[in-house]
């Protein structure tokens, strides 16, 4: 019981989160972004149920339906609302399935990077000294190079594949979390509740994860919300360049790349609509992230 009341003093309590949620919902633009994001995520999750066809089932594809403009009727009487690609695949279905991959890769890599960077940052701040200096040097060095460059080199070394692109995205992102958590943890570490937890002779991992971590969460959430959008955009870019996902797992970036060659002959829809889906996803996440930053930033609170 004492262990729990120790960290309620610092503020990361259920009532703190309830209050912040209220502040978040006061901004209609952010609420709109959140609603759009929920719709997109639901549509991606429900893709097998709501998509007009299964874009990977070759039996459902007809080459005679290839590259039809939006609104055309397919051979079997269905309508291609957003047109079809070079294999006669319904673009709307391809986009819905592509969203699953884009969102999945983005979310998974963000979660892993968050966990990894968070733990490293916490530990670095808690231990201090030489290890802290070494870790932060590595973080500084990595952050002085653009993410896309590091990801390109990694993928050049690792090759293609869904696991490899997640590994590359995690490597690119962990440093942001490590730096953010370390900054907050350094400030929190000197507070009384940490001293109290240490006084109870709790094991280090309990002090770190049970007491320090909950109070470092707000800035971590802000960074994660921005980074998830970056991860999705980066994956799309790498896939577009032909270095990300293999053709068997067509994310939005790969769909856009497929349409590139038809763009010059005026068949815009093959690239255009997957891009719109990507854009809506990233904008909705950014709107939410923008509001989260305002709500959770202690400097703007008072």
């Amino acid at each position: 019981m004492t262990a729990h009341s120790a960290h309620t003093i610092a503020g990361a309590t259920p009532s703190f989160w309830r209050e912040k949620a209220g502040e978040f919902l006061a901004d209609w633009l952010a609420v709109g972004g959140l609603a759009l994001l929920l719709i997109i995520v639901l549509a991606a999750l429900a893709a097998p149920l709501i998509a007009p066809q299964n874009p990977y089932d070759l039996a459902q594809l007809d080459v005679l339906d290839a590259r039809l403009p939006p609104g055309s009727a397919a051979g079997d009487g269905k309508t291609f609302l957003l047109g079809s690609d070079e294999q006669g695949r319904d673009l709307l279905s391809a986009i819905l399935y592509g969203l699953r991959i884009s969102l999945g890769v983005g979310a998974l890599s963000t979660l892993i990077a968050l966990g990894l960077g968070g733990v490293v940052g916490l530990w670095s701040a808690y231990r201090g000294g030489r290890w802290d200096a070494v870790i932060m040097r590595v973080v500084d060095l990595q952050l002085s190079f653009p993410a896309i460059l590091i990801a390109l080199v990694l993928l050049a070394a690792l090759g293609q594949g869904i696991g490899k692109i997640i590994a590359a995205l995690v490597t690119v992102q962990w440093a942001y979390y490590a730096r953010t958590v370390r900054g907050t943890a350094l400030a929190e570490k000197g507070k009384d509740y940490i001293a109290a937890a240490q006084g109870l002779a709790l094991p280090t991992h309990r002090v770190l994860l049970g007491h320090l971590l909950p109070n470092c969460l707000p800035p971590l959430i802000v960074v994660a919300s921005v980074q998830v959008a970056h991860a999705i955009a980066l994956e799309a870019t790498l896939s577009f360049l032909g270095l990300g996902l293999p053709i068997t797992e067509p994310s939005l970036g790969l769909l856009i790349a497929n349409g590139y060659q038809y763009l010059l002959s005026g068949k815009y829809w093959v690239s255009f609509f997957p891009g719109v889906a990507l854009l809506l996803t990233i904008v909705s996440i950014n709107l939410v992230a923008d509001r989260l930053r305002d709500v959770l930033n202690p400097r703007l609170a008072r």
Binding site: A229, A233, A236, T237, F240, L241, G253, I256, G259, Y260, L263, L264, G266, Y268, S271, F272, G275, L278, L279, I282, V283, N286, L287, D290
Partner: peptide, 29 residues
């Protein structure tokens, strides 16, 4: 500026080509 942050560079490039090179025919691609 929010839009500028959100738009993926490669897709904007494609759209610029689509509008100015293909549909309007003003600039080379």
């Amino acid at each position: 500026s929010i839009l500028g942050f959100s738009l993926p560079t490669f897709w904007v490039g494609l759209m610029l080509i689509m509008v100015f090179a293909v549909f309007l025919g003003w600039l080379p691609s």
